[in-house]
């Protein structure tokens, strides 16, 4: 069933690191900076622990977008886990493309613990991007 664009409510998974982006999300909360409710956040300890299969799993289970949020380069709580993830990012885009997902449905951003407004902005912007792209073709492909 294809939903019409107007009532399309994207489901977006955000895999974020505990120390920076998750904290920024909490700060956005304490600062009452609202953003659309389409984001579902999953707390990881570090972007460096995000296994490519988690991203693939999210897309195949029907996520319309996946957002990865980590510490700015140089600020990683675990020295350089964020950079390790960044290295995997290019490969990740290629993989999801092979599965039929537009690589723009996956986004990586560095959002520091003090950047509540940046978090809000990033969420709003990514949700809008996915909204414009329409539903993910996941339902049409196999589900693991």
């Amino acid at each position: 069933m294809v939903k019409s664009m107007s009532d399309f409510q994207p489901k977006i998974i955000a895999l974020v690191c505990n120390w920076c982006t998750y904290t920024a999300a909490d700060l956005a909360g304490t600062s009452r900076l609202s953003y659309p409710a389409n984001i579902r956040m999953i707390r990881m300890m570090c972007t460096g622990m995000i296994d490519p299969k988690y991203i693939l799993k999210a897309f195949l289970d029907g996520a319309d977008g996946v957002f990865i949020g980590g510490c700015h380069p140089g600020d990683c709580h675990y020295i350089n886990g964020n950079l390790k993830f960044k290295k995997r990012m290019a490969g990740m885009e290629a993989i999801i493309k092979q599965f039929g997902f537009d690589e723009n449905r996956l986004r990586l951003r560095w959002i520091g613990a003090s950047e509540g407004p940046e978090f809000q902005h990033n969420m709003t912007d990514f949700i809008q991007t996915i909204q414009d792209m329409g539903p993910s073709p996941a339902q049409g492909i196999m589900v693991l």
């Binding site: 300890m45 570090c46 460096g48 622990m49 490519p52 020295i79 886990g81 390790k84 993830f85």
Partner: peptide, 10 residues
Amino acid sequence: CMGCGSCAAA
């Protein structure tokens, strides 16, 4: 080990 999980992803 600090539990960063770099090894798990690698």
